[in-house]
């Protein structure tokens, strides 16, 4: 008798509660995109576009929360447990770290999407004040005495690492250029840095809003944005003779999407970056689109520049990181805070 009573009661209770809850179940899904500093505006617009697309396609209401900071710091936050469904960071090394330290993504993450999982590119340029009062034309000028250079900290900022490597690569590519000359140039440049922000957006604030420095080594998109926001009468962009091709990569964080049950929408979110609309939004926010047809429409915005890749000059991110940015690496040797 007791068993019968129990079974009936359990069935009744489960059915009533289950029916009530299922009737209220809503198709809402939330993603967290952990990104680097200057992508705020890009992903604000992109998230809205994707949400509209996804709701039209599946009926699901998707909300994408954003988190921004220095790329290295953001990667560490994910390694430490920040539950990012997707990461859209400044450089591949930071995502590699998420694989190596937290095993939250597979080793071959970069092969999962086209163009090494980098849906848009950028480069590193020099932003100077209107009229270029210090006559800055190329990387050499940044190491001259009396020039105040603004760049973020390569230890925490992906953009800063691109900046550093762009200058280093330039020096190597000069006639007679070698590692010693490159080190000398970069050392002189960092001697001219009065403030090291932790991220690219912070450095933009330092240079643009606080009025510090003669030249800001900047993401091209950040420089174009500064000129657009504050007017051509205040800043000028100098394209160096040689600079680096920056390829900010993206990936889903497998352990998190599987836990949240968000793999499909997270995957679609990143794939949408490669669509025409995604590419146009990227271009609108001054990131160089990969898709040729879209790039064609923005040729005026993005001048042709002499670019080198990290693989060509440094043998890839892992090697560059170990040589230059690891503890006791070249950067630690050339930059001593407070000196």
């Amino acid at each position: 008798m007791i068993v019968q009573v129990l079974i009936r009661a359990v069935l009744l209770l489960t059915m009533t509660v289950g029916l009530g809850a299922s009737a209220q179940a809503q198709k809402n899904v939330t993603l967290l995109n952990v990104s680097y500093d200057p992508t705020r505006e890009l992903y604000q617009e992109f998230n809205a576009a994707f949400a509209k697309y996804w709701q039209g396609k599946t009926g699901e209401v998707v909300t994408v929360n954003q988190s921004h900071g220095g790329s290295g710091k953001q990667a560490r936050a994910v390694i430490d447990g920040l539950e990012a469904d997707v990461v859209t960071l400044a450089l591949a090394y930071d995502i590699d770290e998420i694989h190596q330290r937290a095993k939250r993504i597979p080793a071959d993450w970069q092969k999962r999407l086209a163009d090494n999982s980098s849906p848009y590119t950028s480069t590193i340029v020099l932003l100077v004040r209107k009229g270029n009062p210090k006559g800055i034309k190329d990387w050499d000028d940044l190491g001259k005495p009396g020039i105040s250079v603004i760049t973020p900290n390569p230890k925490t900022s992906g953009g800063a690492r691109w900046n550093y490597l762009a200058a280093w690569g330039y020096a190597l590519r000069q006639p007679g250029g070698d590692e010693a000359k490159a080190k000398d140039l970069v050392t002189r440049i960092f001697k001219n840095v009065p403030v090291l922000d932790s991220g690219a957006r912070g450095s933009t604030t330092t240079f643009v809003e606080r009025g510090i420095g003669d030249v800001f080594i900047s993401w091209e998109n950040e420089a174009l944005l500064a000129v657009k926001e504050l007017g051509k009468d205040k800043f000028e962009i100098i394209y160096p003779s040689v600079t680096i091709l920056a390829e900010p990569p993206v990936t889903v964080v497998d352990k998190v999407v599987d836990k949240h049950g968000t793999r499909a929408v997270a995957q679609a979110y990143l794939e949408y970056l490669y669509t025409e609309e995604g590419q146009k939004i990227a271009a609108k926010h001054y990131y160089r689109p990969r898709q040729a047809t879209v790039a064609q429409q923005y040729t005026e915005q993005f001048p042709r520049v002499n670019l080198f890749t990290i693989d060509e000059v440094f043998g890839g991110w892992e090697k560059a990181q170990k040589t230059h940015f690891a503890d006791s690496g070249t950067f630690d040797q050339i930059y001593q805070p407070g000196r």
Partner: peptide, 24 residues
Amino acid sequence: RLFGFPFKATSIELLQGLGLGIAG
């Protein structure tokens, strides 16, 4: 023990505070 609020997620405010269960 199983315990539930059949109307907690509904808009029937009058019954949202009803909890039923069975234990043994």
